[in-house]
Nucleic acid binder design. Structure first.
Lengths: 347, 347
DNA sequence: TTGTACGCGTTATCAA
DNA sequence: TTGATAACGCGTACAA
């Protein structure tokens, strides 16, 4: 261990004293207030640098009631889609002079509640959230809404009406496109491994799947439809069930890529030929889908586009805040695109 | 757009007024100060809930000079290793009542500087940083050190002595083990695709590689050693160079898994048999290495262990702060482990 | 264009 | 065990 002494903190008062000016002038100079003589401003900036002055966000935030900080709550930073969204959000917010506090809920509702509490305590200027799959009650976001702080939900959004802005991918169309693609490839016996129906994601994807089946005159075998946490382990369990009898599916639509990849692994281990005997489609276009062989067909969600729209919307809301606009009433839907790969090939 | 009104903010003064107590007592009750009557505390907590009181971090931080917030600067949240480290850090810090502000530098030195500035302005109680590969000058962290704020560097750490705590993987041993493993598999003509030598990571891995070669009496072909940004694209370029002549290597040690995976893809495209004609080892044990075929041998860095040690060390430093201990003088080295897979198999 | 004076919400210090 | 009061560092009416 080594020792370090606490040193003196320079404040605008120190700059004022050194320059024989009032703290008010220093504050104005540092905040690009119009009524400051150019020379004064230069002197102040120079002295600030010389003294190693750093603004204290807490003091200025307390006074001005603005933090220029945005809070973000997501289930996990390690999910490809979210990692990309974060990167875009951070970069774009930075251009507008906002900072970002990133928090992980680990897909735990109680953690999500605590994080919301903390971010509120930090008085963030806005909140962005991708909720957990189990979040049904959104009351822990009420305080933001009541306080006039814009809230943007993306990806996993409230199913019921809520006074916040919604930005989400077109899950219905994504599922519809993937299912139709499988059908066009000649599949008739299509299984669907989906997530918990508490989430809008899987409600919409399930609806898209059913609609596509119906539109093509195919019946859905309920034994082949799963709603479960989309883990690698659960995917294997589902695959075991699907292939434990003689009547087996000829295609699988998986609601995430982890499940699709597990299905590929299962098929390899069992000697089931993909795509010949079983075609597989996933969701999210995780980089792993392109690496595994056979490469997996998946649905691209354009995370960068999602991130960009989030920040655009946020900046808009923040700018209009004095007029009292805290959310967009219409959900913003980001289009998706099916990426066809070997796992659904007919050649 | 919809409208939302700004509502009244309740403060400890409101609670004090409602309870006919002084704000000081409210503060003490809410902070679990010992000298508060049990009944008073209960009354306060009850009234706080009733009024929807939320502490204002800015005000308490300003006054107490503690934020119970830790800043984290990393190159990218989307890198597997870092994503895992973050998760552990956040969860462990949370147990100790600390919050985490995660910031991405995008591997840009100027962004790293700005983020350091911002986190200092937020007066975080401690800073954790994995620097960019180009960070040679660490002056932007000086203000923390001078202010007595503990700084912990991990993974990418200053090469020269710096008044901060260092936590890193055993890159020398990792590279030594991987190279020795290739040699034990019968390889004699080993190429090394490494990163920029500005970073401790690649200095150490390069040293480990050389030491292993030397220890086994093998000579290093300098045309087969690359120091470059470890991107997918650069990896392909390096592979092209390696295989453009008739004298080709029989093994590749890559300093990250992206490079190793690109090498596998290159080999497939060129009809080079892996592992028969070319053995490949990567670094970091990214999940993709287990998915691609052939699966890639890699070096596990135990990100969860790294994260745990970071928080342990931090909590220790924070607790001892009044005694003036702001860093550990000895670097903390986390062991690594070679994970052998098909890409280096001799069967 | 600059200075004066106050307050943001909380906590530390002292006194009661 | 509680209260009164000042102070943290900054921004902003208002006055000059």
């Amino acid at each position: 261990m080594a020792t370090g002494k606490k040193t003196y903190q320079n404040t605008i008062l120190d700059i004022a004293e050194a320059l024989k000016l009032s703290p008010a002038t220093i504050s104005r100079a540092l905040n690009n207030h119009p009524y400051v003589k150019e020379k004064t401003r230069n002197d102040v900036v120079e002295m600030a640098t010389k003294l190693g002055y750093r603004r204290n966000h807490m003091a200025s935030g307390l006074r001005s009631n603005k933090t220029r900080t945005v809070g973000l709550i997501i289930p996990r930073v390690s999910m490809f889609f979210h990692a990309e969204v974060i990167t875009t959000i951070q970069n774009d917010l930075h251009k507008h002079g906002y900072n970002l506090i990133i928090c992980q809920s680990n897909d735990s509702v109680s953690m999500e509640r605590e994080l919301a509490e903390t971010l509120y305590a930090s008085r963030v200027d806005a909140l962005i959230a991708a909720c957990t799959l189990q979040t049904i009650d959104f009351a822990h976001f009420d305080k933001f809404v009541e306080h006039g702080t814009p809230v943007i939900f993306y990806d996993r959004v409230p199913v019921k009406a809520y006074r916040a802005t919604l930005i989400k991918g077109d899950d219905f169309q994504g599922a519809y496109a993937a299912t139709s693609h499988l059908i066009a490839a000649g599949c008739k016996r299509i299984a669907h491994v989906s997530g918990p129906l508490t989430s809008n994601l899987y409600q919409d994807r399930a609806a898209g799947f059913l609609k596509a089946m119906e539109a093509h005159g195919l019946s859905v075998n309920q034994d082949w439809v799963f709603h479960q946490e989309l883990s690698h382990e659960n995917a294997f369990k589902a695959m075991h069930k699907l292939f434990e009898t003689t009547a087996v599916p000829d295609a699988l639509f998986a609601d995430n890529d982890t499940t699709a990849i597990a299905a590929i692994e299962f098929a390899k281990a069992r000697g089931i030929a993909v795509p010949e005997s079983l075609k597989i489609a996933g969701y999210s276009n995780d980089p792993r889908t392109a690496i595994i062989s056979p490469a997996v067909t998946s649905v691209e969600q354009f995370p960068n586009l999602v991130g960009r729209r989030i920040v655009e919307t946020l900046v808009d809301l923040l700018a209009a805040e004095q007029e009292g606009a805290v959310y967009k009433t219409e959900p913003i839907i980001i289009p998706v695109k099916l990426i066809s790969r070997m796992s659904t090939s007919t050649i």
